[in-house]
Design a protein around this nucleic acid. Structure first.
Length: 196
DNA sequence: AAATGCGCCAACCGCGTGCGC
DNA sequence: AGCGCACGCGGTTGGCGCATT
């Protein structure tokens, strides 16, 4: 990407590069992570020769350079899933992201703020009957998305929710195994989380 | 054609948590 | 038990680019 390279905001460490990443920096980071793995970001930043903080390297890797990142528009099914998950989980973007293979928490957060927040607000203002109607319509779109894309499937609806949610990028969501809202697993997950 | 407004998105920041020493 | 480091998360910022006037 690297569409900006203005140095952006003033920071505490003026000797460190800030702002948009260049293709060269991307290449260096990708090469280093490829060899040493995505860990110890502080040393990644130093040893890769990048004049960046570890945090920045981590973010760049997670949100852009990771090989399993899916770029491009959200599908209807993804769109719908985000709405539903947000209804249940709130602004827990990382949890939502784990249910959307190839999507990052940052991307989902941005997408929510840009596209879905208005939609959700609208939904809240609608009377219950209208919401049900909208939900039914979305259900149709969703079924369409499932059959065409076939990308979203759930590995397990319950069980070891924490391990499952950690995800490795391969797991996808399948509404067909779910109930009315397809989110019973979320409830069980939340119970597990609150217990711990 | 130029000016202005607005939406989108990459990136930064601060805070909380986990873990090793 | 306490401390410091590394990492993860969510909120926020700032600039680019498109749309509108």
């Amino acid at each position: 990407m690297a569409k900006k390279n203005s140095g952006a905001k003033a920071g505490k460490r003026s000797d460190q590069t800030k702002g948009a990443w260049t293709a060269d920096e991307d290449a260096k980071l990708a090469q280093y992570v490829d060899i040493h793995g995505p860990k110890r970001w502080k040393s990644v930043a130093v040893k890769s020769g990048l004049n960046r903080c570890g945090k920045s390297c981590r973010l760049r890797w997670l949100n852009y350079l990771r090989p399993d990142i899916k770029r491009g528009n959200m599908s209807d099914a993804e769109d719908d899933l985000i709405l539903r998950l947000h209804r249940l989980l709130g602004n827990r973007w990382s949890l939502i992201a784990r249910r959307l293979p190839g999507r990052t928490d940052n991307e989902i957060k941005n997408y929510w703020n840009a596209h879905l927040r208005k939609k959700a607000n609208l939904m809240e203002k609608l009377p219950a009957t209208s919401i049900a109607a909208v939900d039914n319509n979305w259900g149709d779109e969703e079924a369409e998305g499932m059959s065409s894309g076939g990308e979203l499937k759930e590995t397990e609806a319950s069980g070891d929710a924490d391990d499952e949610l950690r995800g490795d990028g391969d797991e996808v969501f399948d509404f067909s195994t779910q109930g009315t809202y397809g989110l019973e697993w979320v409830k069980s997950f939340l119970e597990i989380e609150e217990d711990s």
